[in-house]
Nucleic acid binder design. Structure first.
Lengths: 225, 225
DNA sequence: ACCTGAACACCGTTCAAGT
DNA sequence: ACCTGAACACCGTTCAAGT
């Protein structure tokens, strides 16, 4: 796809896609701890082929997460033309939270790996980009407080996804409920207390990635070196 | 301690404590993926002794988490007499978030294991208990909205801890900032929109524990059986 | 009654041998 | 060029043998 990439042999290209499909299916069925052996088997290839396509299991997970983030960015772009900027922002957040419920394991991955992988960082920048535009529109419309940034909102959303979604199977209303609480937190309100600190930026995210090179991996890897 | 427990031989008692100390130190230094071999070595005992005291590595982690939660409950109790109920509640939350920054790995554990372990569930009930009292006082004082429960607040706090703390090393103000946002979310405000759903209860938590017996473990275990 | 470390089962990852 | 599966390193856990 990307111009920089070499053309793959036909069977290699097919194997790559098969691995992604198999992993996607197994991960959302049974979580991130399904073995690579089973993924390779379901894809109809040898274990070695998996590691030829994805240097590590984490990279395989990252590839799927990047896909999902790209889809989110697309949905966000279409909302940029919506008539009500405030609702557009909250629709965007609700859509992400909704998808997260479908395949929980995948979004859990982003929690830890968030910045470990270059491609994830790039995709993340895309998400922050659209979110920033949606947020700016909502702020101009007076629906959202001025002293908040896209990274703030993303962090709040991640909190809702990770925490509330654990209960979504029991009470489907928990996620909507906590999206309402997010809304209360970011709502434009003259009586609101000012926030301490500054809105985190994308550069702060990069710095975290550099400072924590050996953060706890998603799946415990053998070679800690 | 507990009446139901048998008296241990002197050396066994000492080994138990040594294992807890060693694990505590190593986990907060290098995260939860330090090997059991190293923990046993630092404690000066054989690997087998570790598993005699704690049936699995997860149980060892759980034991430490339970300790921490007990400490939180104690701190919460002392705040029950504070003059300003609203501030008492937010002090309690800030203290928990503060400790979480010290040994991040440990609180991360609660994220996944939260309800897997019986003792953690019991300790969790304790935390929800004090938090409920602090919350009720704050609500009576008109500092916090009425349509919110202790579990709601705990979920919001977990979101702040898990998400914001990742950035705390870069910008120490991120956690206070997001505690301010939590405050804005739960603040008593006549103009606030009502929340969807109902406040989750402790019984909902139990039900999640039953419904998800094979949730992704903290550390990938060998025997999935 | 408790401790020990060699042995086991199960991962992710590599690599020599194939096509 | 790409694929394969046996082999490897590294975990958590068990258990026969010790004291």
């Amino acid at each position: 796809m990307t111009p920089g990439e070499r053309a793959l042999r036909a069977d290699a290209e097919r194997n790559h896609q098969r691995l992604l499909d198999a992993a996607e299916a197994l991960f959302s069925e049974r979580g991130l701890d399904v073995g690579v052996a089973e993924i390779a088997e379901r894809a109809g290839v040898g274990r070695g082929t998996l590691f030829r396509n994805f240097p590590s299991k984490e990279d395989l997970i990252a590839a799927i997460v990047v896909e999902r983030m790209g889809e989110a960015v697309e949905r966000g772009r279409t909302l940029l033309d919506a008539s009500d900027p405030g609702e557009a922002l909250f629709d965007f957040l609700a859509q992400i939270a909704g998808r997260q419920q479908l395949d929980r394991a995948l979004f859990d991955a982003v929690a830890d790996t968030w910045l470990a992988n270059d491609e994830i960082r790039a995709a993340d920048a895309g998400v922050v980009g659209v979110l920033g535009k949606l947020l700016a529109r909502a702020q101009e419309a007076g629906a959202v407080r001025q002293d908040i940034g896209a990274m703030d909102v993303l962090m709040l959303l991640k909190g809702v996804c990770e925490t509330a979604s654990a209960f979504a199977h029991i009470d489907p209303q928990v996620v909507p409920r906590h999206l309402d609480l997010l809304r209360a937190a970011v709502r434009a309100d003259p009586a609101a207390q000012p926030l301490r600190g500054r809105a985190p930026t994308l550069e702060d995210v990069e710095r975290v990635a550099v400072k924590q090179p050996n953060a706890a991996p998603v799946v415990s890897s053998a070679s800690t070196a």
